[in-house]
């Protein structure tokens, strides 16, 4: 009995209506925090952090490159888990989150690759190298894009969701490969600066703005995920009575 009640709670959490109404008041806060953190971190990192002893000022690209890569990888797990929950419990909201996460993930992976290329030119001497880290990151971009493109192959919305969730799950193996690629293969890419197990191999004056940027990107990610999902909810549920009431109310207010 008690177990049953727990599952109903779980299903209520998966209701698009609940999500839409609950997240409404979070948006301005999340937006403000993300904007403050990102602007502070960027100004600090670009203008106030000391230059690197060997790389000079080109190292400042790290303040975009590392946070974007972080979230591109963490976001993949979020997306894959959302897909798995959707496959097992058939929760619509879960698939909507998955689709939103795929769009954001693709954009962040693109940022990581672009900033990496622009950083590589002055430091390594090449925009692009077929090195294990960079190649596996490119595969991540294709996985994200593949999930979005695959949806168009299906006319049935449900099978589109299922197919892209399966592709997402298969792709999860790529994430640890990306993370460990710098240790497993001879790569041009340097090993991780920030590790869970030890102190960052970076001077505190340079690390502080990086930390601010990473936190800023996390908040930004949450904000973008909520915004995309809310738009998706309205589109998918536009015939549901609560959406109609909501729109009618808004119209009445105008």
């Amino acid at each position: 009995m008690k177990l049953n009640r727990q599952w109903t709670w779980f299903h209520r959490l998966g209701s698009p209506r609940w999500f839409y109404q609950k997240t409404q008041c979070w948006l301005p806060w999340l937006g403000a925090i993300a904007a403050i953190l990102l602007v502070t971190g960027l100004v600090w990192g670009l203008a106030f952090a000391p230059p690197d002893a060997r790389q000079g000022n080109s190292f400042r690209i790290i303040y975009l490159h590392v946070p974007a890569s972080f979230l591109a990888l963490a976001g993949y797990y979020l997306m894959a888990i959302a897909g798995a929950v959707g496959l097992i419990w058939r929760i619509k909201l879960s698939f909507m989150l998955m689709k939103s996460a795929a769009t954001i993930g693709a954009a962040l992976t693109f940022i990581a690759l672009f900033t990496g290329a622009v950083w590589g030119k002055p430091t390594w001497g090449a925009y692009w190298v077929w090195d294990a880290r960079i190649t596996s990151m490119l595969i991540l971009l294709f996985l994200y894009l593949g999930m979005l493109v695959l949806r168009h192959a299906f006319t049935n919305h449900e099978s589109a969701n299922k197919a892209s969730a399966i592709l997402g799950l298969v792709g999860t193996v790529n994430v640890p490969i990306i993370y460990k690629s710098v240790d497993w293969w001879q790569t041009l890419h340097q090993p991780a600066t920030i590790k869970l197990t030890s102190a960052p191999s970076m001077h505190p004056d340079m690390f502080a703005p990086l930390l601010v940027m990473i936190l800023g990107f996390y908040c930004f990610y949450a904000l973008a995920l909520i915004l995309f999902t809310r738009a998706e909810i309205l589109e998918r549920e536009r015939r549901a009575s609560w959406v109609r009431e909501l729109v009618a109310e808004k119209q009445g207010g105008l």
Partner: peptide, 23 residues
Amino acid sequence: HGVYVWSAVFVSVCVLIGLIIRP
């Protein structure tokens, strides 16, 4: 190094803004 740093900043900021405007 300005060309590299600022082009990275420009493209990233454009993509991030796009991620808010689109939804």
